[in-house]
Amino acid sequence: MKNISELQDIATQIRRDVLRMINSCQSGHPGGSLGCADLFTALYFNTMNAAPETFAREGRGEDMFFLSIGHIAPVWYSALARRGYFDIKELSTLRQLGSRLQGHPSYHSNLPGVRAASGSLGQGMSVAIGAALAKKLNGDSNLVFSLHGDGEVEEGQIWEAAMFAGANGVDNLISIIDNNGVQIDGRCKDVCGVVNLKQKFLSFGWDVLECDGNDMQTLLNTLEECKQHAHLGKPVMLVMKTQMGKGVDFMEDNNGWHGKAPNDEQMQNALSQLKETLGDY
């Protein structure tokens, strides 16, 4: 088990990876990736029971993770590589022709750690429910995690999934919403009235927790709490408050950095704010 300081170092290195990957191909989504670096570190290095060395798609006997907001693939790829799913050198191939690190995650490209494609928004909660139901049929008591965006909940399928999971007591599912409050066209509350997420999910029959998603200790504690709430008859939702672009001052809380690559000068500025802790790839 890693201590807080070690986990924070991993998250910082993941942020460096994200910036270098996106700068290198001059394409990708840094904002949400940086905001979720702490979560991915917590999940893969502490919370989840995952087996990188023997990765199998069916995920029997281990926890499973589904990224519904496929555009933040860079942070997931970095976490997977740093956790040992594949060599960190491969991070340099993001979005290049023939790479397993597709612009949005793909099972088709055989990247260990990825079980389903995502990118077209709104589908991942349903896919995670399917995996959770299969675990129940298989008598596997491990958990299924999924990550969503607060802009993504504008997709109707999220609410189809939320209604189904609540009605059917899919209580081995822990879904997380990255509640950074911004999306491409502006503030989520202005774009389509994304407010009161906690109340919305409570009314759909979920158990709902909230926390600061950029404070490692709080995040670890709350994820443990989520696990304690599992297997009690209700699906579990964690509404996680984060800052888009967290860790790089000029990107923080700025929707302009949702899907824009930093140029070399901007990257140097950004990297100067993030210590190289584990060694760049």
């Binding site: 069916e58 675990k135 049929l137």
Partner: peptide
């Protein structure tokens, strides 16, 4: 799944990738 075909198809995908 109720009248929610999109959810139904994606749930099926999650079950299938788990071996069903």
């Amino acid at each position: 799944t109720g009248i929610a075909e999109s959810n139904m198809v994606s749930i099926a995908s999650g079950m299938a990738l788990s071996g069903k």
